[in-house]
Computed example of a mutant assay.
Amino acid sequence: MAIKAIVFDIGGVLEHTPDTGMMEKWEERLALPAGEFSVRVMQAWGAGALEDIPASVLHQNLCEATGMDDAQANAFTEDFWKDYLGIPIPN
């Protein structure tokens, strides 16, 4: 029997994602009140979790919701993925 699919799960199941303070660091960079940045990011990306939205639209939503320019949004997205993917959980 040939393998037809491989399913990977991220988000705390197969890896450990400790709080690194990444969101707070971006909050400080953008001079936003405590907790505000996370709220804005969730508003910007929320639709992407529920719908098929192009990455370019998510990027634009992020810029509009947070006030970041393209370079900042790209840097944040890179930081976000590094933070979100975490490290493998040891056996």
Results as ranks from 00 to 15, higher is better:
V39D: 15
C63H: 02
E51Y: 11
K25H: 13
A44I: 02
I87L: 01
A2E: 15
W81A: 08
A49E: 10
L30I: 10
R29A: 15
I3G: 01
A65V: 01
K82I: 03
F80A: 03
E15R: 04
Q43V: 04
R40C: 05
D79T: 01
I3E: 10
K4G: 14
L62T: 11
I3Y: 10
D69H: 07
G21P: 14
I89A: 05
L32T: 02
L62M: 07
E24M: 09
T66P: 07
D69P: 02
E15Q: 12
I3D: 06
P33F: 00
Q72L: 07
A34I: 12
P54D: 14
D69T: 06
P18N: 02
M22E: 09
V57M: 00
L50F: 07
A55V: 07
A47E: 03
E36K: 12
D9Q: 11
A75V: 10
T77G: 02
E51L: 13
M22H: 03
E27A: 03
T17M: 04
D83S: 10
I87M: 05
W45H: 08
N61I: 01
Y84N: 00
L58W: 02
I89W: 06
F37K: 01
E64G: 05
P18H: 04
H59P: 03
E24D: 14
A71S: 14
W26Y: 09
G11H: 05
A2D: 14
F8I: 08
E24K: 15
Q72W: 07
R40S: 05
